[in-house]
């Protein structure tokens, strides 16, 4: 887990607080992140609360034909979005160890959330 002084900074922090499939929040948050990155902004993603479920590996389409968001996560490196952070306690609550994750993330403590928001001039919350 990184201490606060090592936290990344950037132009935009996108906070993702909803899991895949249950609503459009996650998909529309990731769409905003990808568009900002395509426009040359330095984007960081913070997964917290149920949003950490987005990181689980081996996700499929939803049984109700929702598209799912894993392909979008896999596209992030193409858009040079490389600052992925997740709240450690929320990963633990869902039993998501490093071996369960589809993409590598930096695990942060709850105090880092405020520090990350302070390090990005623009924060979008989904």
């Amino acid at each position: 887990m990184s201490d606060e002084s090592n936290l990344p900074s950037g132009d935009l922090l996108v906070v993702l607080r909803h899991g895949p499939h249950g609503s459009l929040w996650l998909r529309e948050g990731l769409e905003a992140a990808l568009v900002a990155a395509a426009l040359g902004q330095r984007v960081s993603l913070l997964f917290m609360g149920p949003g950490v479920a987005a990181l689980a590996a081996n996700q499929q389409r939803g049984p109700l034909e929702q598209k799912g968001t894993l392909p979008m996560l896999e596209m992030l490196p193409l858009y040079e979005v490389e600052q992925l952070l997740a709240v450690e306690d929320d990963l633990v609550a869902l039993g998501l160890g490093a071996e369960c994750l589809a993409v590598p993330v930096e695990r942060v403590g709850p105090a880092a959330v405020a520090a990350l928001m302070a390090r990005h001039p623009l924060v979008l919350n989904f």
Partner: peptide
């Protein structure tokens, strides 16, 4: 309009306030 306008609004205004 496109989502690019949202990013642009966030960067070009003094404040962007979210109501969700």
């Amino acid at each position: 309009t496109g989502l690019g306008q949202l990013v642009d609004a966030g960067l070009s205004h003094d404040r962007l306030i979210t109501f969700a």
